[in-house]
């Protein structure tokens, strides 16, 4: 059973001020998978995503997404950054934020059309946020904000989702909505790559796993990769035992 590799990273090295954060990493993301990336704090998980997406300079290595460079396929990629990159004081409504997901298809200068607004509304609806369309973004709760950002990714109509800790600080309900969405997308043939921090839910939520601590410790199918030895190798073993599962 051969699996298609949709994101192929080779020899990726990244550094901040020449202090290496990621060293010579090869990562393969399987098409149509739900892949989690785990690792201790400061392991370089966010940096890896930024490197793959070309948001941050790399020192060496190549990234191919669907066999092409990121610049060629960015329309097919939806990225949900860690929420601290957002300017919360900005005067904008939930619907407006979701509409931003359409910008990638509009190109410079052109304005969103009726059809785009329709798509944005549907996306909000999918996340159960239709009643909050007119709400100022800063007046939403943490979970609601996250749903809006997922809706923005839906509106973008991408093939691959990159999410940086989407479940951090959200309520149980939202967590379920997001995971259901990931499973649903998988059925539609999409791929998601999600930075995750909760080892207890890991195996339930995802089917593939990348363990990272500056270097790739292990990657592959969840069942084969989530082992005590691998967690220990990533300094994540403490307080959690696979045997319990």
């Amino acid at each position: 059973m051969s699996e298609n590799i949709i994101v192929k990273v080779e020899d990726l090295t990244m550094a901040y001020h020449d202090k290496p954060v990621l060293w010579d990493n090869d990562v393969n993301i399987v098409e149509n998978s739900r892949t989690a990336i785990i690792g201790p704090n400061g392991a370089g998980k966010s940096t890896l995503l930024k490197g793959i997406l070309g948001l941050q300079k790399t020192l060496s290595g190549t990234v191919e997404i669907m066999g092409k460079s990121v610049k060629q396929v960015y329309k097919k990629i939806a990225y949900i950054p860690q929420s601290n990159s957002v300017n919360w004081d900005f005067p904008t409504t939930a619907l407006d934020v979701v509409l931003m997901g359409r910008y990638v298809h509009l190109g410079w200068i052109k304005r969103p059309k009726k059809k785009d607004i329709e798509i944005a509304r549907n996306a909000l609806h999918k996340m159960g946020m239709q009643d909050y369309a007119k709400r100022q973004i800063s007046q939403l709760s943490g979970g609601q904000k996250q749903r809006v950002f997922i809706a923005r990714a839906i509106a973008q109509n991408a093939e691959i989702y990159f999410m940086d800790e989407p479940l951090a600080g959200v309520d149980k309900n939202t967590e379920k909505v997001i995971i259901d969405f990931l499973k649903d997308s998988q059925k539609q043939g999409k791929t998601s790559i999600v930075i995750h921090h909760d080892l207890n839910t890991l195996a339930d939520y995802f089917d593939h796993l990348v363990i990272l601590n500056k270097r790739i410790i292990a990657q592959g199918k969840m069942s084969e990769t989530l082992t005590q030895a691998n967690l220990d190798a990533a300094d994540m073993g403490g307080g959690f035992t696979i045997a319990a599962m």
């Binding site: 001020h17 020449d18 010579d24």
Partner: peptide
């Protein structure tokens, strides 16, 4: 320092590879 480090760092990178 960056220049000096960068030189050494590239060599290290090659050895790593």
């Amino acid at each position: 320092l960056r220049h000096k480090n960068r030189k050494e760092f590239r060599l290290d990178l090659l050895i790593m590879h």
